[in-house]
């Protein structure tokens, strides 16, 4: 047992190491490409230039408040979206009629790119933050609702039978058994919803805000500053991955393992 574990840890470490090497090679190729001057500097700046520009933005006190602003909008927008999605998903999971109709609406909504919600939000909310919350909610709520409904539909019937034989009253089934039993799927929905909401938040900020990652990205374009554009894209990816992998991903894995859905 002990040996197996060590080997597994070794494997993980080795894989992480190889990934790190891959990114270093990628960075080196970028640098080489830059040195060969295939493209002018305003099309392809060097990694160093991008990094320097980010440092400048940080030094000017613009970068970090922008990251904070976008994350705060996500906290509010996605928080609301998760609540609404959970509620609608539970209704869909319990009522076949709601499921049949809402599912088709949500599946349709999911084919719409997040940015396509921006014009309608501008028309309704103008240039306020509420419009950004709206875009986040519309981008991510369907994913949460569908995952919740699927989670409820796929609860092992044995849990429900066990709960009934143990005397669970009908009114308590929802929060005592159905929601916890559906939690792994709900968590998957949150993870996917977060990513879609993140797309929505940055898309909306491109057009209608005076702070935030999307705004800085847009500003980079206005200034014809490729270093800023690339830098902001990297920062956006970084925080997206950070939340997706290291917050929602870790929670999802822990729940799945505990619920006995992943066998080590």
């Amino acid at each position: 047992m002990r040996i197996c574990r060590t080997r597994k840890e070794d494997a993980v470490w080795q894989r992480n190491f190889r990934t790190l090497v891959f990114y270093l090679v990628l960075l080196a190729l970028w640098q080489i490409f830059f040195e060969m001057r295939f493209f002018p500097e305003y099309i392809l700046p060097s990694p160093g230039m991008v990094f320097r520009r980010l440092r400048e933005l940080g030094g000017d006190g613009i970068l970090w408040p922008s990251v904070k602003a976008t994350l705060l909008r996500m906290a509010i927008g996605f928080g609301l979206s998760a609540l609404i999605g959970l509620g609608v998903g539970v209704a869909m999971g319990m009522l076949p009629v709601a499921n049949q109709y809402l599912r088709s609406v949500f599946l349709g909504m999911q084919t719409l790119p997040s940015a396509a919600w921006v014009p309608i939000s501008l028309l309704i909310f103008g240039l306020s933050d509420r419009g950004i919350y709206f875009v986040i909610i519309m981008s991510s709520m369907a994913a949460v609702a569908i995952a919740t409904a699927d989670g409820i539909a796929n609860i092992p019937p044995l849990y429900l039978r066990a709960a009934k034989t143990l005397g669970t009253p009908r009114w308590a089934m929802g929060y005592q058994v159905i929601l916890p039993a559906a939690l792994p799927s709900v968590m998957t929905g949150f993870k996917l919803g977060w990513t879609l909401g993140w797309h929505g938040a940055v898309s909306a900020e491109l057009i209608k805000s005076s702070i935030g990652l999307g705004f800085l990205l847009h500003m980079g374009r206005e200034l014809n500053d490729m270093s800023q554009v690339l830098g902001l894209m990297l920062v956006t990816i970084f925080f997206g991955v950070l939340m997706d992998r290291f917050l929602f991903g870790v929670m999802e894995n822990r729940i799945r393992r505990r619920w006995g859905l992943d066998h080590e």
């Binding site: 849990y159 143990l166 005397g167 505990r258 006995g260």
Partner: peptide
Amino acid sequence: PGFDRLVMFQEAALFPWLKVIDNVMYGLKW
């Protein structure tokens, strides 16, 4: 169904979101 006639299944059907002790306490809640 009711807890004057409790059923044990082929699978343990324990609730994974509860600790062992909370599983055993579950039926007492009602």
